[in-house]
Design a protein around this nucleic acid. Sequence first.
DNA 1: GATGAATGAGTTTTCATTCAT
DNA 2: TATGAATGAAAACTCATTCAT
Lengths: 216, 216, 216, 216
Amino acid sequence: MPGAKKTFLRLDQKKQQKILAAAIDEFATWGFHRASINRLVQALGIAKGSIFQYFGNKEGLFSYIFDYAIDRVKVSLKRVRRDTENLDFYSRIRASLLEGISFIDRHPKLYRIYLKMVFQEDFPARERYLKKIRLFSVDYLKPLIETGINRGEIRSDLDPNIAAFMLDAIFDRFMQAYAVPFFDSGSNIHGAKHEEIRTMIDQIIEILKLGFGSEE
Amino acid sequence: MPGAKKTFLRLDQKKQQKILAAAIDEFATWGFHRASINRLVQALGIAKGSIFQYFGNKEGLFSYIFDYAIDRVKVSLKRVRRDTENLDFYSRIRASLLEGISFIDRHPKLYRIYLKMVFQEDFPARERYLKKIRLFSVDYLKPLIETGINRGEIRSDLDPNIAAFMLDAIFDRFMQAYAVPFFDSGSNIHGAKHEEIRTMIDQIIEILKLGFGSEE
Amino acid sequence: MPGAKKTFLRLDQKKQQKILAAAIDEFATWGFHRASINRLVQALGIAKGSIFQYFGNKEGLFSYIFDYAIDRVKVSLKRVRRDTENLDFYSRIRASLLEGISFIDRHPKLYRIYLKMVFQEDFPARERYLKKIRLFSVDYLKPLIETGINRGEIRSDLDPNIAAFMLDAIFDRFMQAYAVPFFDSGSNIHGAKHEEIRTMIDQIIEILKLGFGSEE
Amino acid sequence: MPGAKKTFLRLDQKKQQKILAAAIDEFATWGFHRASINRLVQALGIAKGSIFQYFGNKEGLFSYIFDYAIDRVKVSLKRVRRDTENLDFYSRIRASLLEGISFIDRHPKLYRIYLKMVFQEDFPARERYLKKIRLFSVDYLKPLIETGINRGEIRSDLDPNIAAFMLDAIFDRFMQAYAVPFFDSGSNIHGAKHEEIRTMIDQIIEILKLGFGSEE
DNA sequence: GATGAATGAGTTTTCATTCAT
DNA sequence: TATGAATGAAAACTCATTCAT
């Protein structure tokens, strides 16, 4: 049911973009429940009724935003996969991590929406959204791992599911640490120069190599 | 300023416990902003004004709950540290991870409150709360790592800060994955039998050993 | 910021008038702080939210009422000034006093709002409102006095500022005495027949003539 | 009914004074309705129930404060009357005005309570309080005027009631202007050096002499 | 198709007063 | 006599949604 209505899609691109940007702003700043349609239309200078005509209700609007975000990620990772086809497993993971933080840099608000969605359990239709992400994560990592095993870069006694979980966990936590200003110093990585982050990633890759790959 | 007033602390233990439990329930279910004092007093069968006499305002109530949660964690980890004093570094990390998921089993609501707090950036006085946690995490991990280095269980060329970050990240992500019903299957670990989790932890420990310790 | 929103100004005149009247009633009866939006919308038979859509908040509503009152006074005094252009100074003051009590007769509630505003020091944005009045009082009295001095009706050694203060004081206190049911009898003037008030004014004017004008 | 109960009067003087001072503070700052018993007992560090045992209810407390204020004024003016017995009428009025502003300097809070009481018409039992003041004002001014007429300092064709009204008006307005920070500059007298105020008073006295006394 | 006025249940917070201890 | 916990009505304000124009 939710999502964009034809009325929205018939608008000219410029207006669609404007509404999209403002809605992303609102949800990223306030989360779903505290986001205010009042404030949104105020900022946009359009009628309140229009939003409901375009998206049905608040959730419809959010749903559209979320699908848009997923699309951005998909496009982004597809490019990495294609560009790294000939590299070894660890280089591909490394490239993916770099792409992850690059994505946050380019779309910080989209990532914040995602984070809020994951941890605010009372989100409407939260499970449907999460399923989309899960499928997507598996879709992306599983082939990488399998190719790695086939090529002998990962020891064959490692359960691919466990490997996927670990990679997903590292991925996720690394991005969280990068996006959320969690710590002021010490173990914090946000604000660190990209060089330092690259060093961190290299260390992680090193550990993965030792842990995943050391067979002989 | 916020926290429990004398008024609350003077109540008999039974009533205090009842209110504490109901408030934890409310915040864990709804997060801070969507939690409703109306609903809370309804559930408790007491007057609305009483809550404000006990805690000053909504934030005061939350603050009290949060401090209570931190105390639980402290007690919990202090025990682990004491009980594992004579074990090697990796065994201690392993014990800490096990204690972490045990804590979630015993206090699932407290952990959910914590998660929401971390990712809802518009939380009132969020930074004050986060500082408490950060200090605490550093207080706990740093000595463990240093002892490990001194004992030669961790290679000396590893930056203790990086090590702390990685451990904190693994810790945190593992607990998140355990607490949040993120995935329905596959790489999900929530709902997995404790046996399987133990196996996962063992694998992680193995990787850490290889990554942190392999010096010679 | 505060004042009427477009939403209010777009309503049809009849409804605007009805709301205006009811709000004046509420503020005149209860003052700012004790005025109740609940009671107001109850009396009007409209939804509570509407008032906030019209005026933003309670202060916005008050602000609108106050500006309306100032406008009434301005119109009223402008007329006096124009109608008495050719009269001498003392006749003009006399006419102004008469207009003052006539204004109270026509708009008793507006005057009561004004009085409460002046003496309730914790009023929000009280200073902004008072500034409006002060400017207005000076704007009105100063030219009158200067013209009087130029025409030789006021002795030239009288400080115009002192004269303005005295006139303003007499003006103000006279109107207060007229509007506020201060005394039940004796020195009270409220409820006195207009004839008697005219006599009082004449005596005051006589004193002013002797005090301000006796030069030779 | 309202006023202080025996329970209050039996307290030792120090505690009575402390409560009196705190209550004056509260009422002067917030007016009657916005004054908070909660805040008062908080500031005093005594039990909330005590206030109700001492004064019955909020109005009883206010009533006691108000009576206390009237007493202060009475004592103050009685002294002026006695000290100026042998002076002429105008000197006595002059001395009274000076005593008025001196009273405000010594008891600014009491005067603020009075002002709020006069203009907040929904005050409980407001009329009873006002009657006290009226009687008092008449009691003070009438004898002064009559003595002045008898001594030939005031022309005999002046209605003593009108004279009393005018004096009361000037008195009152002058004190209001002194107490309330009404104007920022120009015609404002608050904050003016006492010297300047003395000059103002002298001019007013001069006008009164011309207006009241010029008989021959 | 666009508008925006109307709605009313919801929110947190304050407060004078009562009364059992 | 003193205490202070309990009360609940009242306050200002927000908001997603509806629907007549």
